[in-house]
Amino acid sequence: MSAFQEITQAAREDERVEFSAEAKKKIEWIYTRYPNREAALLPVLRVAEKEFDGIGAAAIDCIAREMGLSPGYIYGVFTFYTHYKRAGEGKYVLQVCATLPCALRGCRDVVHHLEDKLGIKPGETTEDGKFTLKKVECLASCDTAPVVQINDDYHENLTLEDLDKLLESFE
């Protein structure tokens, strides 16, 4: 083991996290529904996302130990998808759809409004850790454009006034 490896592993051990018994039970159930561990990774990432409030290095390390996959493999899969919550993202993740139908129905105004209101650019998180703003691709709700997904909920046919009300409800 090189010095490089020792240092990084020591750092990793400090921030080690573990799944709760409940999450482990859920993961066991997920395993029964997929042919192999690789296939079960996506739903397990969903579990980890809730469990650790966003997936970071420590969470990936924990999943790797739990599933017997290499951390590199999980990292590759995790970074491929944009819809998992990253560690360090705010309590409310605002995902503004920026694909064509939403763009035609004024998503740019939505983004600009949120930028002004929250003082952050897409991809950033407010200093109080409350909001993260993201511009994302199609949320598959074109008939109700413009759409913003906030955590697990869709907010459709948004006007700027609706948006203000929504933000206030999160205060």
Partner: peptide, 10 residues
């Protein structure tokens, strides 16, 4: 191509 941070190619 990359490694997972903290798990270098060793």
């Amino acid at each position: 191509v990359d490694v997972f941070p903290g798990y270098p190619l060793e």
